[in-house]
Design a protein around this nucleic acid. Structure first.
Lengths: 112, 112
DNA sequence: TCGGTATATTCCCGTCAAGGAATATATGGC
DNA sequence: GCCATATATTCCTTGACGGGAATATACCGA
């Protein structure tokens, strides 16, 4: 998951992912549309591939890069676990906080 | 959004976010639970805060850090736009690819 | 106001990633 | 097999980032 986040954290790679949402594309096509130099595109695609975000498929001498659904699905599942926060009144948790402060233990064992 | 991804890309910060899912916590509490040194925790929390992922609330001399829902919501909305990929048969797009190859134009104007 | 606790900031260092330029590899057509 | 196209890799430099140690700041209680 860290790899997924790291891959998407770069602006250029994010743009590539966004572009690939419309379907698989060869490297040069990506470079032209996003105004990126070919080596950089290849390098970014490599990172995306290692993160499992894209898949390659040879087509003559070009390589078609396509988005893979799985990492996005995993990301979605991870987010689902936070869904409770979206409507939950977070303020209510502040009370609960009091307790946490209590069990706040100093690193040592006994309080001197 | 890049900031959100960048913030979550770091393993330690990811752990902090995961921990905060259970509710707001003071800095030291985070450090103890995750076995991180206090300065590092503060630094990571700074990044998380600048990314809008957490919120601070002073409580005596400690600071309670809490998750903010908005960035996660935005992340969710962004993911929704990719939902089509999750059930769509991607192979079908390969045909569509043929077309893309056609309109593949060389950088120059006329082919020599 | 003073001491102590909780947190933030700074400095230093090693690592890593990104961009640019140049070069290498692969594939298809002839 | 040779050339051209499409893509990948390497080298280099630079800037950002994370960890550790030390220090600074904020806030509380007496």
């Amino acid at each position: 998951m860290h790899e997924t986040f790291a891959a998407l954290a770069d602006p250029q790679r994010f743009r590539i992912v966004e572009l690939l949402r419309s379907g698989p594309r060869p490297v040069n096509d990506i470079g032209e549309r996003l105004r990126l130099q070919q080596p950089q595109v290849s390098k970014h695609l490599r990172v995306l591939k290692e993160a499992g975000l894209v898949d390659v498929q040879p087509r003559a001498q070009q390589r078609l890069y396509a988005l893979r659904a799985q990492p996005l699905r995993e990301l979605h599942e991870w987010l689902e676990r936070y869904h409770q926060l979206w409507d939950a009144r977070f303020e209510a948790m502040d009370e609960l906080l009091e307790e946490l402060q209590q069990e706040e233990k100093p690193h040592g064992r006994s309080k001197k």
